[in-house]
Amino acid sequence: MYFNGVKINRKNIDEIRRKMGMVFQSFGLFSHLDVIENLCAGPIKLLGKSRTEAEGKAMDLLRIVGLSERARHFPHQLSGGQKQRVAIARCLAMEPEVILFDEPTSALDPTMVGEVTAVIRGLSKTGLTMLIVTHEMSFAQEISSRVFYMDERGIYEQGTPAGIFENPQKSKTQAFIYRIRSFHYKVESRDFDYAAMLAGIDNFCFSHAVADKSAKKLRLIAEELVINIVVPRFGVCDLSVSFSERLSRYEVIVTYPGNSEDALATAADDLARVMIHNTAGEIVHTFVNGANTLRLTL
């Protein structure tokens, strides 16, 4: 790990930490010290500032986070949002080159999230480098200059906020951004338990509060496509029923093996084909890596 081109090791870590602030999920304010002392501890002890100078600077910072009135209060007398703002001010008191935020709003009541994000938003305008780990998507989209989606033990996808939030490329990113919920069922033989599959779809729609009308349509498409068209012809397939909370989009995706062939177009069962065509809005067939995919969108 490098900081400003210097490799971080045990020897220089304390030195580097002085230039690198950190805001914790659970605040980490020194509970035996009042707000002003929390802010002054580092600068006096580590930066060698005089008490007058440190306190002056601390008051300026408290004004920035809107808490100058609370200078002589103790952490236990503050609300969660106030504590987190003090923690941010404490970081700033060390005049860091970068601040790390570890889920700064996760431990907060939803009503207090706003006051903390407002402070961070204000800071973002000053040009200070900030690295924020957060689940507040709209907040991230709004203030970030670069977004990393973390999954599978590392950076899964990265890009500009526009790139990640408007047009995610990878499936997990998409599932996360679009808040996609899905139901999977694997058909392994012609004698599969179709009743269990249909019950699974019903259950999925019920537990995610899918509107009755849409639920019926999804069930109909899945039933006709899998039971009457794909399975009689190919024997096996993967069914995926999903919907995006964010885009209000419902999809049925069926994957099956074989040569490139649009099973729906070549289906022998006309009735089933017509019913599907009438129910689905958009039907796309693709063939990638030896697998056919039929994507039907409501």
């Binding site: 930490r17 304010l29 020194f30 404490r90």
Partner: peptide
């Protein structure tokens, strides 16, 4: 941890 993060 917070104190360490400040550079103590």
């Amino acid at each position: 941890e917070a104190a360490r993060s400040l550079g103590f």
